[in-house]
Design a protein around this nucleic acid. Structure first.
Lengths: 193, 193
DNA sequence: GTCATCGATTAATCCTGGTTAATGCGGGAC
DNA sequence: GTCCCGCATTAACCAGGATTAATCGATGAC
């Protein structure tokens, strides 16, 4: 209908047709970002919600000493936002950067807030999105808490095989909480079985 | 008004008075659990939401080999639930156990679901609770991803000093993802400064 | 009171991943 | 084509936490 990836995303979580759909759809813009370009930086106060139409985004914590750890990868039809989007006032603790040339749909979060305040259907959608997000973070907590680095890679390969193909090893390492050298050693060790 | 800890919790996240408050309040029961007793076990399908009136609960992942890792501690006026509460169908991957003699208020989650489906105010409350939960899991992700074991303990002491007093060292260890012996060594090392 | 139990502490040893550094490889700029 | 640069790979060495085991202390059962 609109051709938006946002539509696919919303249809996935909504139980039926959504009122004021046009208000939502028309609030979106589409931007192109080059590989390596940043979408927002740590410290920014950005109130937009982003949906990936094509490409791949990484959310990155940067420590004072320059170390970088990857919070998550966002692929097609998935969404992301700066921390201040959901908790207004807060500044982003992490940045967002394109890993491939990407197309992003984005709109101000206040649009969704307003719709959720007016229609229970939109409130339910917001709920489902949050729940989805919470479940992902919870799973990541489980992985870090109960799995050793080597097992974390095995888990990654079995649950997100396409990512392992698509992403450079050093970024997989930064996502799993090990150094690039460390991950390479783990992989070679596994290959000997 | 009701004397429920649930009331304090809801008032903290709601922006104003909530419709059908009685429906909510009267859906609750209160249970006492002895220290060491379990509230639900991994694999259970429990659709209740629990609020701690007094005492302390731990949520625990138990691995096939018997290892135990603590997902979180739940103290007074905080809530918790089995995974199947929010994602019906799913079974709990973790169990809940009282660390102190505790009083728990609980009601079937369907009550909240129904209220949220009828009143936008309740939908907003549910949203706020989910957001709160997501933020906590996100913070925990950050801690595991960017902090070494020793720094995780420093972080714990500065953000939840009361927990460090209240909880045995071995449980702090299981929460931080290190062994009891490991944590003890870390603490002693830190004391030499 | 004694005993048993559980948690804290300490020490010895092991092991996995971190650190540093060197080499190789491949793709892009020119 | 050549030159770079970033990533992967490998090796040597280091370090922090894991493992195992022994001791100690406090608490609760009896």
């Amino acid at each position: 209908m609109t051709g938006l990836a946002a539509e696919a995303l919303m249809n996935r979580v909504a139980r039926g047709p959504l009122p004021d759909w046009r208000v939502f759809a028309e609030a979106f813009s589409v931007s192109r970002v080059a590989a390596g370009a940043s979408v927002f930086r740590p410290g920014d106060q950005d109130r937009r919600i982003f949906i990936v139409r094509s490409g791949l985004i990484k959310l990155v914590y940067t420590l004072p000493d320059g170390e970088e750890w990857i919070k998550s990868f966002i692929a097609e039809e998935k969404f992301f936002a700066c921390s201040s989007t959901l908790q207004s006032g807060a500044a982003a603790g992490f940045g967002a950067e394109a890993m491939e040339p990407s197309e992003l749909e984005h709109c101000d979060f206040s649009v969704l807030e307003r719709l959720a305040g007016q229609h229970i259907e939109w409130a339910r959608v917001l709920n489902a999105l949050l729940l989805d997000f919470a479940a992902k973070k919870e799973e990541r907590e489980r992985v870090f808490l109960t799995l050793k680095p080597a097992d974390r890679f095995v888990w990654l390969k079995s649950t997100m095989p396409s990512l392992v193909e698509r992403v450079p090893q050093k970024d997989l390492a930064a996502y799993l909480g090990v150094t690039p050298v460390g991950l390479n050693r783990i992989i070679k060790r596994l290959e000997k079985d």
